[in-house]
Simulated scan of single mutants.
Amino acid sequence: MPLLRLFAIALFLQLSSSVALACGPEKNCPIGDRFYRIAMPEGHDGTTPVGALVWAHGYRGTATAVMRNGNLRRMVSDAGLALIAAQGVNGSWNLPYGPRTFDSTGAAEFAYFDSVLEDAEKRFPIDRNRIVASGFSAGGMMVWNLACSHPAKFAGFIPMSGTFWLKPPQSCTGPISSIVHIHGDADPTVPLTGRAIGETKQGKVIDALAKYTEFGGFNPSKPSKPGGLTCQNRRNANGKILEFCLFSGGHSFRTEYLRYGIKRLRAAGQI
């Protein structure tokens, strides 16, 4: 084979490999038949390891839309974290007791998140010890399932306006994690006391908190009122935190509340 042709083939393979690796905020990072998107902090040097916030979108959401949320990206970047936007199947998460996934164990989603983290850590300088999972609405439900049933690869969790479908698992899986749950006190979409949807229902937020309080050996709560939130703060003997914070309003997401969750996990030494 002529030398020039061999050179051309080698160059093509090198360029193809570079293109395949060039995923980010505007291009999907493929994971089997799914994908994720990622944005490193603004001005990142490309080599220094950073923590990451893995975001689970709400019902019918997309990773693309998450990356187009300038306020969210800016806030996560200012916190010195990479933003990893996970993508559900057809905008939904395969969770136990869900309306279309009642018999699910969540295993498919847990495997997907494992693959996302493994892939992101290979492609980008992600510090695997400083990865937080957060999400809003249905994404908050995904986060609670990760926290209780698949916590090992995360440093902490910030579920927002979402909880388990129907009821929490009978028991949670270790290690015990830090959780900051944030919710509107008049949420009509995911009410604090749950609501029926089809043949199932959204669970009660208080049931999730009670289950994790028992599991983690958390002390009685202490009240606080930081920046528009009314919180009940718990801590266990190992310094893990379990916080339940309400804001006045309905089913809405505000970056300052997520910022508070990140701040609390950081103060507790989780990230």
Rank of each mutant, 00 (worst) to 15 (best):
P96L: 07
E42N: 13
G80C: 08
I158P: 12
A138K: 11
F110R: 05
A82G: 07
M160R: 05
W144L: 01
A22E: 08
P25R: 08
Y97E: 07
K204R: 15
F110W: 05
V66L: 07
K167H: 13
P99E: 09
I206N: 13
S224I: 12
H44A: 04
L246Q: 10
I197L: 10
L6P: 06
L166Q: 10
A208H: 03
R5T: 11
T48I: 09
P226M: 00
Q87M: 01
L246K: 13
G58T: 09
N94A: 08
V89S: 12
G139E: 11
C148R: 00
Q87F: 06
I131R: 13
F110Q: 02
C29M: 09
S161A: 13
Q270H: 03
D119S: 12
V190Y: 04
I271L: 04
T230L: 03
T105S: 15
P99V: 10
C29V: 07
A147W: 10
A79P: 00
P188V: 01
T64W: 05
G139Y: 06
D33Y: 02
P220W: 02
A86V: 14
L242E: 09
H181N: 14
F7Q: 13
E243L: 09
R128W: 00
P223E: 04
C29S: 09
G228H: 14
A120S: 13
R68H: 13
T173N: 11
S134L: 00
F12G: 02
A8S: 12
F113T: 03
F154R: 14
G194W: 05
M75Q: 01
F35A: 11
S221Y: 11
V205T: 05
T213P: 03
P2N: 15
G250C: 01
C23P: 10
M160C: 02
P188A: 02
S104W: 00
L13P: 05
V54I: 12
S248Q: 01
R73V: 04
D207N: 14
K27R: 13
G70H: 10
M1H: 11
I38R: 15
G70K: 08
K204M: 15
D207Y: 09
A267P: 00
G184W: 02
M142F: 03
G269T: 11
I197N: 01
F113Q: 08
Y257H: 15
V132M: 01
F164C: 03
H181T: 07
S224T: 15
M75V: 00
M141A: 15
L166I: 06
R254P: 00
P226Y: 05
S18R: 12
N145Q: 05
L95E: 01
F157Q: 09
V66K: 04
A267T: 08
L258V: 07
T193M: 02
T230I: 07
A237I: 01
T200F: 08
N69W: 02
R68A: 06
R254G: 04
E243G: 08
V76G: 10
I262W: 01
R128S: 15
I38P: 12
H150P: 09
S92P: 03
L83M: 04
P99A: 12
G156M: 12
W165F: 15
K122P: 09
A196T: 13
H183D: 14
